[in-house]
Amino acid sequence: KKIKIDLKKGPEGLGFTVVTRDSSIHGPGPIFVKNILPKGAAIKDGRLQSGDRILEVNGRDVTGRTQEELVAMLRSTKQGETASLVIAR
């Protein structure tokens, strides 16, 4: 099931960490939400869960991207702006 979640970045950030699983010589594996932090946009919104697979960030497919690339995409969202995620659960 795909779910679109918009998180408005506040002073505590987006409020979640990510982890890559099953990376191989063929490229990075899928990226999942690792933890929801006690402060930040994710816990206020309440929909994002540990174990959700991140498919898109701000309309860009993240398949084949590294964890570092995904984190850079999320960090490029400025405070007060919205990060738009599509996740699979």
Rank of each mutant, 00 (worst) to 15 (best):
V33N: 01
I36V: 12
I3T: 03
R60H: 10
R21E: 09
V18Q: 02
T77P: 08
T63K: 07
N35D: 13
S50K: 12
P38E: 14
H26I: 15
F32Q: 13
D6K: 11
I3H: 04
T20C: 08
E68V: 03
G51L: 06
T63D: 06
T17H: 05
V71M: 14
I25R: 11
V86F: 07
K39L: 11
D6V: 12
L55P: 00
E69G: 08
N58D: 10
G27S: 11
V62E: 03
S23F: 10
R47M: 09
K4N: 12
G40E: 02
G80S: 11
S84P: 02
R89G: 04
K2G: 04
R65T: 05
S23A: 07
Q67V: 04
N35F: 07
T63P: 04
A42R: 01
V71K: 15
D6C: 14
R47T: 12
G51P: 00
G59K: 07
H26D: 14
T63V: 07
K9D: 13
V18A: 07
S76M: 09
T82F: 09
K78A: 08
V57P: 01
S24K: 15
A42G: 03
T82A: 14
Q67W: 06
S24E: 13
V19K: 12
D6G: 12
L74Y: 03
V33M: 01
K9H: 15
I5M: 06
S76K: 14
I43A: 05
I5R: 00
A41D: 12
A88H: 08
L55Q: 12
I36Y: 00
R89T: 04
T77S: 11
T77H: 14
E56V: 06
G13E: 08
G59C: 03
L74C: 07
R75P: 04
F32E: 12
G29A: 08
E12D: 10
D61R: 07
G46A: 08
L85D: 03
K39V: 11
Q67E: 14
Q49C: 13
T63S: 06
N58G: 11
D45V: 01
D22K: 04
G80V: 03
T77V: 13
L85Q: 02
M73I: 04
G59Y: 12
K44D: 05
T17R: 13
A41T: 10
G15H: 00
L55C: 04
L74K: 03
H26W: 04
S23P: 13
L37D: 09
S50C: 07
K34T: 13
E68W: 03
D6I: 15
D52K: 00
K9T: 15
K34E: 15
K4P: 08
K34I: 15
T17S: 12
T17K: 06
L55N: 03
I43P: 14
R75Q: 01
G80T: 12
V71R: 11
T77F: 13
Q79H: 09
P38R: 11
D22T: 07
I31W: 13
R47D: 05
G46V: 01
T17Q: 14
R65H: 08
G13P: 14
N35V: 09
S84V: 05
L70V: 05
K4Q: 04
G51C: 08
S76T: 12
Q49R: 07
G10V: 13
L55H: 06
Q49Y: 11
N58F: 05
S24F: 08
G46Y: 02
L85G: 02
K8P: 11
V33Q: 01
E81P: 03
L74P: 02
A88L: 13
R47V: 10
N58Y: 03
L14H: 04
L74N: 03
E12C: 00
I36M: 06
K8Y: 09
L70Q: 07
